[in-house]
Amino acid sequence: MGPLVINEIISANTNLLIAFLIGIGFGFVLESSGFSSSRKLAGVFYGYDTVVLKVFFTAAITAMIGLLFMSLFGWIDLDLIYINPTYVPSAIAGGAIMGAGFIFGGFCPGTSFCSAAIGKIDAIVFIGGLFIGILIFAEGYSLWEGFYKAGFKGIPKLSESLGLTDGLLAFGVIIAAIGMFYVGEWAEKKFPREEY
């Protein structure tokens, strides 16, 4: 049956509409879990607040379990799900830039728009920086095109390179997530902060 757009069960326009509704839901959850505070995001790095880690990891394992069960029931063809192709050097450089921006700014792209929507000035400045970054990347593309496209690895799956089934790896990820939640809550107690 799925993916719905690929198999032409719904049109591309309906797809956009659904994406719009999901986007509103996503923004709502971000805002209501307090993600529009940059201190909450920075808290992950200092250990006083690990809500971000917990929310995103819960989302990841929920989606993972959901997809695997839907595939098991024949509702979706996992071969047709988009997976970002892997380019090793650009993944490392991009991860480092993104991580640094995360600590400096206290936002990730999604949460910055979320808190700009409620009028936070730091978020608006952050978005300004984001566009400057986009501009630099796009205008200087010829300079880093070689680096950007180096080390292409296709779409390797962790389960395939470890020789495990998808289900077994999913189980491992769940165990790891629960362990991480436990460590996160321990850190919250260990490095408390009165007010932020």
Partner: peptide
């Protein structure tokens, strides 16, 4: 409630881990 959620996830994970992956093949 955290313990309950964790147990639910571990339970679902166990089911998916124990299911042979070839049953997830495309349908006729």
């Amino acid at each position: 409630s955290r313990v309950i959620f964790s147990l639910v996830f571990v339970g679902l994970g166990l089911i998916i881990a124990a299911t042979p992956s070839n049953t997830t093949k495309a349908y006729k």
